[in-house]
Amino acid sequence: MYPVINKNLKKTITAGIILFSAVSIFAQTENRNWNGKKCAVVLTYDDALNIHLDKVIPMLDSYQLKGTFYLIGSSPVVSQRISEWRTAAKKGHELGNHTLNHPCDGSLSGRDFVTSETDLSKYTVVRAVNEIRITNTLLKAIDGKDERTFAYPCGDLTIRDTLYYNFIKNDFLAARGVSSGYSALKKVDFSNVNSFFQNGSTAEQMIAQVEEAEKKGSFIVFLFHGVGGEHALNIDLEEHRKLLEYLKKRKKDIWTAPMVDVAKFIRENKNK
């Protein structure tokens, strides 16, 4: 004979099943703090390279993904291909500010590539601010937009001992740095957003970084230069494609968006 289960016990079991189901549903939907997704990914590309227009943007478009392209205002790839950058912006890609002349601190070791004209250590803060604002004017003439983000050339934050971004922080939603790390939504430093520098990286390595961001309920900013060539800092075009394919397949859980959109989202949700 089977034991008889009384009505109260049945009610207890039923309530337990309902509670377990509710917890399971909650577990599946919790930690979706990034525009309804588990994490956010930002794809950034520095220095206004031909390869960005010729290969990267068409590849992003094919996967329906958007990136941020940090343009150097004086670059011939900007002046000679304005209509193509304008088209990219119309498709949803961000044109970010990477200064007018890409000045880097030539007083640091390993900076033999820095010329006297582009030596940030010889700049005044006023000159740096003026050149950055000139670049903003140029970018607005291309895309018609007022909101955008900034990226420090070479990751250099200061002119001697002065944090020059403090003088232009109201001109941007955020500034991307070069130090890696996963920040909680409420602890993002808009004056120096973490990023993961890529050089010779495989898709497997980059995907692992995305998965770590997802695990931490955070976001990740990728920092690319060359993609398939044109720069000493480079990743293989096929490895880049594999990363995009992964992001496309994981779109239900991963929000891939330009830096300006992610920065705006963080600002709007940071204090909630």
Rank of each mutant, 00 (worst) to 15 (best):
residue 209 Q to N: 06
residue 169 K to I: 01
residue 208 A to L: 04
residue 155 G to I: 02
residue 21 S to H: 00
residue 103 P to F: 05
residue 242 K to F: 11
residue 231 H to D: 15
residue 4 V to I: 15
residue 236 D to G: 09
residue 135 T to I: 11
residue 202 T to C: 12
residue 106 G to R: 07
residue 126 V to I: 15
residue 199 N to P: 03
residue 97 N to S: 12
residue 17 I to D: 01
residue 166 N to P: 00
residue 118 T to Q: 14
residue 124 T to A: 13
residue 85 W to A: 07
residue 223 L to S: 12
residue 214 E to M: 13
residue 90 K to R: 11
residue 236 D to W: 10
residue 139 L to G: 09
residue 162 T to W: 00
residue 268 E to W: 05
residue 182 Y to S: 05
residue 240 H to F: 15
residue 52 H to L: 07
residue 161 D to Q: 03
residue 135 T to E: 13
residue 134 I to Y: 14
residue 117 E to T: 12
residue 237 L to H: 07
residue 89 A to H: 08
residue 208 A to S: 09
residue 188 V to W: 03
residue 163 L to W: 00
residue 205 Q to W: 03
residue 162 T to Y: 02
residue 189 D to S: 08
residue 131 E to G: 10
residue 178 V to N: 07
residue 170 N to V: 02
residue 106 G to F: 10
residue 231 H to W: 10
residue 231 H to S: 14
residue 81 R to Q: 12
residue 244 L to R: 05
residue 74 S to G: 07
residue 205 Q to F: 07
residue 58 P to W: 10
residue 35 N to F: 02
residue 253 D to S: 15
residue 59 M to H: 03
residue 36 G to K: 00
residue 171 D to G: 05
residue 236 D to R: 06
residue 271 N to H: 10
residue 62 S to N: 15
residue 108 L to V: 06
residue 228 G to F: 04
residue 268 E to I: 07
residue 45 Y to H: 08
residue 154 C to S: 02
residue 265 F to V: 11
residue 25 I to M: 00
residue 65 L to N: 08
residue 256 T to Q: 14
residue 222 F to Y: 14
residue 19 L to G: 00
residue 226 G to K: 08
residue 237 L to E: 13
residue 136 N to D: 15
residue 44 T to D: 06
residue 267 R to I: 14
residue 270 K to N: 06
residue 169 K to W: 01
residue 199 N to D: 10
residue 115 T to K: 11
residue 180 S to V: 04
residue 121 S to H: 14
residue 259 M to S: 15
residue 175 A to E: 06
residue 105 D to C: 09
residue 116 S to K: 12
residue 241 R to L: 13
residue 29 T to R: 00
residue 34 W to N: 01
residue 129 V to F: 11
residue 122 K to R: 15
residue 42 V to T: 04
residue 14 T to F: 07
residue 176 R to K: 10
residue 112 D to S: 14
residue 31 N to Y: 01
residue 173 L to I: 05
residue 165 Y to L: 05
residue 14 T to E: 03
residue 122 K to L: 15
residue 260 V to R: 12
residue 172 F to H: 03
residue 109 S to W: 03
residue 135 T to K: 07
residue 61 D to V: 09
residue 32 R to V: 06
residue 50 N to S: 03
residue 10 K to A: 08
residue 19 L to F: 02
residue 224 F to R: 05
residue 191 S to D: 12
residue 164 Y to Q: 01
residue 199 N to T: 05
